[in-house]
């Protein structure tokens, strides 16, 4: 198994596939975060938006992300866009829901303080709402990340599009279990690295700054 991973790494296929997958992930996940956070804030702050969108968001959240693939293929063909669409749909709603929870959970006295100090508009959203909800938003982003990663792998497995998923199905076609397991290991490693290193670090930093943990 090590040999086959080594082989893949040596001829550059592993690197290229990883770069390809991560590139897609960053794009898709970026879109999810950029749309999901404002959507979550809007759902928490506006009764109208909440009434209109919340049932749909909660309902669609129950749909496994790969179920979006047939629709994506119908709309966008067997293209990059189709995979991005699946990644976005897989993580957007989780980010939105966690952000909504985070914003609804803000200590009301902070909102009142902002009101009495006359903090309005963009300054209020960027300076009070977002930072106050940040611990909750980060949880959502973390969840969204793992959903996006899964959706991406599922998408890449289902049609030839390059990336780690394709390396997996290639291994299967070649009846090379070692390659399959090696690539699986890489996928786990990347997932864990981002989850446990990047997000964990951010989370600890934020919780410490916000005074949510004991500082010893």
């Amino acid at each position: 198994m090590t040999a086959s991973v080594g082989r893949l790494a040596a001829d550059g296929r592993l690197g290229a596939a990883t770069a390809r997958s991560l590139g897609r992930l960053v794009q898709g996940y970026g879109i999810s975060a950029a749309l999901g956070v404002p959507l979550g804030i809007a759902m928490a702050r506006s009764l109208l938006v909440q009434r209109a969108l919340r049932p749909a968001v909660l309902g669609l959240q129950a749909l496994p992300s790969i179920c979006w693939l047939p629709l994506a293929v119908l709309w966008f063909g067997l293209s990059e866009t189709a995979i991005l669409f699946v990644v976005v749909m897989g993580s957007l709603l989780a980010v939105a829901i966690a952000t909504e929870d985070g914003v609804s959970g803000i200590d009301p006295v902070l909102l009142r303080a902002a009101g009495t100090l006359g903090i309005h508009g963009p300054r209020f959203v960027a300076g009070v709402l977002l930072p106050a909800a940040l611990p909750g938003i980060l949880t959502g982003l973390k969840l969204g990340w793992s959903f996006a990663w899964r959706a991406l792998m599922a998408g890449e497995l289902l049609f030839v599009a390059g990336g780690l998923g394709q390396l997996l199905s290639q291994g299967r076609e070649l009846l090379d279990a070692a390659q399959v397991m090696g690539v699986m290991l890489c996928i786990v490693a990347i997932g864990v690295a981002v989850d446990q290193v990047l997000f964990r670090l951010l989370e600890v930093r934020i919780r410490r700054r916000w005074g949510l943990v004991e500082v010893s």
């Binding site: 009142r112 009495t116 916000w210």
Partner: peptide, 16 residues
């Protein structure tokens, strides 16, 4: 309103 300012019973500071 900007003419009135309330000092809350709790500290009400932005923790970050």
């Amino acid at each position: 309103g900007p003419d009135r300012l309330l000092v809350f019973q709790e500290p009400a500071l932005f923790p970050w």
